[in-house]
Design a protein around this nucleic acid. Sequence first.
DNA 1: CGCCCCTAGATTGTCGACAATCCTATTAAA
DNA 2: TTTAATAGGATTGTCGACAATCTAGGGGCG
Lengths: 226, 226
Amino acid sequence: MALVGTGDSASDAGRSLAERLFLILRAEIVEGQVAPGSKISEPELARRFNASRGSLREALMRLESLGLLERRVNVGARVVDLSERGLLELYDMREALEGMACRLAAEQRTEDDLVELRQMLDHHEQQEELQAGKAYFQPEGDFDFHFRLVQASKNDLLIDTLCNRLYYRVRMYRYQLGMASPRARRAFREHSHIIEAIEAGDGELAELLMRRHIRASRINIENKLR
Amino acid sequence: MALVGTGDSASDAGRSLAERLFLILRAEIVEGQVAPGSKISEPELARRFNASRGSLREALMRLESLGLLERRVNVGARVVDLSERGLLELYDMREALEGMACRLAAEQRTEDDLVELRQMLDHHEQQEELQAGKAYFQPEGDFDFHFRLVQASKNDLLIDTLCNRLYYRVRMYRYQLGMASPRARRAFREHSHIIEAIEAGDGELAELLMRRHIRASRINIENKLR
DNA sequence: CGCCCCTAGATTGTCGACAATCCTATTAAA
DNA sequence: TTTAATAGGATTGTCGACAATCTAGGGGCG
């Protein structure tokens, strides 16, 4: 009876109503359709999706555990506030975790990992040449790259932490701050060097290069904010 | 009407029933009173605590987001299974994150941080001398140390990830594998060196030492498992 | 005029019941 | 004997309603 998923699309199969609400709301928050810091009204959202408050609350709690919502007892839920400090905290986390992911990827790499990462890199190079440095699609491409690379670490806990817990917040910041990245050309070269280190099985170098890559991106953002 | 918290203890003030259930169950899982891999029955637990299934489900979902439970739709929740692989994954995460925490702590340190860490270290030394290497209480003391050190990083995201997300699982493994640690004396010296680096404001060294410290502990565990 | 208390409205927390789904044991057929 | 289908029982997902708590606005007091 719920409005959500009446299209009965394949992606809804085996998913509970609460989970579908969670996916919808996550996208809306990440893409900024719900303003950061704004209050979430349970009755209002429940009416909007034609769902019970119970199912909605489950979705809200999942969003809280992702760090996209903040809930306080007897008060309610708010979308997280974006702050410069929060963004820099994210970068420190990414530097540590993606650095480790690169080290592990270099040690645990399979042929499939290398092939797919290479393909992705080539694809980005094509796009980048076509767009001569503008690189409108680069941000999402950048995500694909980091996402795929983290998978290659084979550490499920690390993968979950980065891909399910941190990246959605990173994307939220990108949507809010605008997606333009003047580092496209340079970022591409850095990606390329990281892959080379992983191909060579040099975990220490791969970690070092990734940490520099993320720190460079952080400095780029810091300059932009002033 | 619920059994939980009828003592009306101060710690229950301002906490919802679901949150108290969460705290109780978390302790029981971490300490092994509920066996790893065992199934969780919602009706059974609800009867035991004299609470509704709704409140209990909220507690279960929080446990899931901590990685202590695994829930599958229309099937139910199970306590996570402990595995050698899972333990090693935890160590890789800790190496990356606590290393970063040390670097940040060295850069952001306050006088309070240094004083408290020193006191803790002295306290451990006393205990350790008294017990001549046996160090029954060392595991929890070790936790106090790492816990306090992470706080000094001042990175809320990092603090939350380590203290609320990873450490409970680490403690779960320790309870399950037995708490004895033959590294007490050596671990103490390593802690001491880490503090010195933080006092000196040498972030790079502090990170390096912490990563070695955790890796040594990992190797110690690996040897024990064979 | 400013501050505090109190009432009214709305929102959140909690509960019990119904419907949908899954697991198990039994039965029948190959 | 083994396999597959099926019915029964139990468990999970979802819902609407009630009780507890918070927030906002008005009135009284210093």
